[in-house]
Nucleic acid binder design. Sequence first.
DNA 1: CCATTAATATATA
DNA 2: TATATATTAATGG
Length: 231
Amino acid sequence: MERVISNHYCILPGHFYPVLKLRAYTQLGVIRNYCKGDSVVLPGEVVNKVIFVLAGKLGVSFLNEDGRQKFMFYVDPFTFADRLFAIEECFVHVVAEEDSTVCFFENEPLLRVLQEDRELLIEFITCYASKCTYFMREAKELVLYRPSARVLRLLYELCRAQGKECPQGYVIDQRITQKAISEITGVHFVTISRLFRYLKEENILQKQANKIIVYDLPRLRALIEEEELRF
DNA sequence: CCATTAATATATA
DNA sequence: TATATATTAATGG
């Protein structure tokens, strides 16, 4: 059964292309469980394993010398945090966002099965490709658009990509917090809160805990194109 | 824990 | 210098 490998353009930093075939090889790795909040990789720790998630979710952040940090992405089931080749001086922090089960694959056995199993190799590369696409988008957005425009564009693209028509307009079934949107876009959480208040007051969209209802997609589009935005 | 709000400071065009 | 965004701090769900 061949899966379609096109259109894995990720707007949010998770749900990258899943490497389902790697599930068949977990006996080659070491399985461990983590509780929500546990560190899976500490900043500065050198790991040369691929961390394949079987259940739950991990979060990956970069920490800087000055104490600042940037959230990078979520590792959902059947995707991985990669240290296939160890990186020195890598201040990455990998934390269990939920109770999670992961499988650690050592470099050599994994490279061997990737060579033996062509389908697995294709999935593995496709997972990397979807992640690469996400980060290219993020880099482009950061350079080209101001903070509030980045949030509006994210919402607009989410609506276009996965919004379902409903009586009020479109509904985006996405459980995402304002804090997460803040981390993804690099916009301060207070600014995010004010922006959502404005969008609600203007009857453009409303964010609830587990969904976003878009009432007026054309106006959302128009706001993105406006030079000024007062909220 | 997450979200809201106001007051104030800083950054940027 | 005007406007956008960040920061801080207090407060509530």
